[in-house]
């Protein structure tokens, strides 16, 4: 466990540096202004990863991480003002860019598989978006009518 935690910390720190660079170039936030927020995000991720290993439930680490992050940023949680202020220095897209950069590099090795998805996956994606959008609108219609709002 300790070995894993140390290795996770290293990987998260490397990724954090990439995000701070993106945050700096893309959103003009100087890296040292974003470091406290990044440390909080790394700490939350580490706790979530440890909980996934330690607890017997089949919830993935991202489930624990999401709950934990919501709790520590609730208005009535002690110190949440700092959590919110510090993490607001890091843009969501600044985290997404390095993920996609590493993903692009990694996808190369499965490129043959990806190409096979091709045009058919385009059709499925359209069905996914159409299905979700229409499904949501239909349910909203029923409930809004039932509530008498529309």
């Amino acid at each position: 466990m300790l070995k894993s935690v140390i290795e996770w910390t290293w990987v998260l720190a490397i990724f954090g540096i990439a995000a701070l660079i993106g945050n700096w170039f893309g959103m003009d936030v100087l890296p040292w202004e974003a470091i406290p927020g990044m440390l909080i995000l790394i700490a939350v991720s580490l706790v979530g990863l440890m909980l996934e290993k330690a607890l017997p439930f089949s919830m993935p680490a991202v489930g624990y991480i999401g709950i934990l992050a919501i709790i520590i940023s609730l208005p009535w949680f002690p110190g949440s003002d700092y959590v919110v202020a510090w993490t607001s220095q890091i843009g969501i897209l600044a985290l997404a860019t390095p993920i996609l950069a590493y993903a692009g590099i990694s996808v190369g090795s499965n490129w043959a598989d990806f190409r096979k998805l091709g045009f058919r996956s385009f059709l499925v994606a359209i069905a996914v978006f159409l299905g979700t959008f229409i499904g949501s609108a239909l349910i909203a219609e029923v409930i809004l009518r039932w509530q008498g709002i529309i």
Partner: peptide, 13 residues
């Protein structure tokens, strides 16, 4: 995991 943490702290407030 860092991205999820960021989404979480955006929701709390």
């Amino acid at each position: 995991t860092l991205l999820i943490a960021k989404i979480g702290v955006t929701i709390g407030p």
